[in-house]
Design a protein around this nucleic acid. Structure first.
Lengths: 171, 171
DNA sequence: GATGTAGATGCAATTGTTTGCAGTTACCAT
DNA sequence: ATGGTAACTGCAAACAATTGCATCTACATC
């Protein structure tokens, strides 16, 4: 199977980890991993489901969700929040972190090294062990910061009203 | 109105910010803020809705969601993820960050100072402006780290299977 | 290969959150 | 005080994610 030959390398550590952890290697789980391995960047649930469904039309979306939750819990997959929606990415051997631009949605990798001092401080001063293994930070990338951010205000949260006191209101 | 006398101090800066930003001070919005101001710790949507509903039975949960989204966007309220569920907390003048223990759910404050070097590095080396204003980091607090974490594995993500190769499977 | 079983899936229902749209209203101007 | 209107809310529908439970099956054992 061609799919496997090309991508087995990328997710074999995840498969091995599942096996070593005593989890079952169901076809659905392996397909989710394969799809994450063969596709660049991060994928939403809908995309993952669509691809698995193409290979195996009887799959249920609940299974995809469950698989992703398990993989996330085992730190085999990274869950990113892009514009309020979960997106997933295979965690690879070279551990790195992500910066996610909240304007254009793009992710930029950065080394765990940047967080070393932060981690050490929290441990030393609070005894708190932060989960920074697969850490993503939101912000504004260099390109978007350069543009005059005509940050469109979403209509759902309502636009700015004309300021005036609410003195006349009583509950 | 008693509620207002007691809590107006805690959320008046948020009310002022809404007004200054040109947003409307609807009763529903002010009630959400009042409830966040008078209750210690973080509150889930359901709790906030229940309290507003008690004061004004005609309120709709969509309005609560919209209000929280607006307040979050304006950084007047902090959204924490506790066990996969959003919880909200009024942002107060003394800016600080949160550590959230994923075992017991407790939050511990820490100063923005801890993130200064991290922020500077990202800006200097990537031109990336991280959103660290109201930053929360998950991890394990000192108390929970001390316990032999009989971390119960959630049943929904399925338990460990007995390891064996998936060689016999073909898609 | 046959059998057994705990883990995993599919289905349908439930819960949590968002969105479209008509009606209401906070607040500005007069 | 009155009128106007863009912002906001409520309602109902839609969408996203989770959960309970019966059935299926990956995989261990013999």
């Amino acid at each position: 199977m061609q799919l496997f030959a090309v991508t087995m390398n990328r997710h074999s550590t995840a498969v091995d980890a599942l096996r070593a952890g005593g989890y079952r290697l169901t076809p659905q789980r392996v397909m989710v991993l394969s799809i994450l391995a063969e596709r660049p960047g991060h994928l939403g649930v809908e995309e993952i489901f669509r691809e698995v469904h193409r290979l195996y039309p009887f799959v249920d979306v609940a299974t995809v969700y469950r698989t992703l939750q398990l993989l996330k819990r085992l730190h085999l997959v990274l869950e990113l929040d892009v514009g309020g929606h979960a997106r997933y990415e295979l965690v690879e051997a070279d551990r790195h972190h992500h910066m996610v631009c909240r304007v254009c949605g793009r992710t930029i990798d950065f080394s765990p090294r940047y967080l070393d001092q932060f981690r050490k401080s929290l441990v030393a001063e609070f005894g708190f062990a932060p989960d920074l293994e697969h850490f993503a930070v939101a912000g504004t990338c260099a390109d978007c910061a350069r543009k005059p951010a005509a940050a469109p205000r979403p209509a759902t949260a309502n636009a700015r009203p004309r300021g005036r006191s609410a003195d006349s209101w009583t509950p």
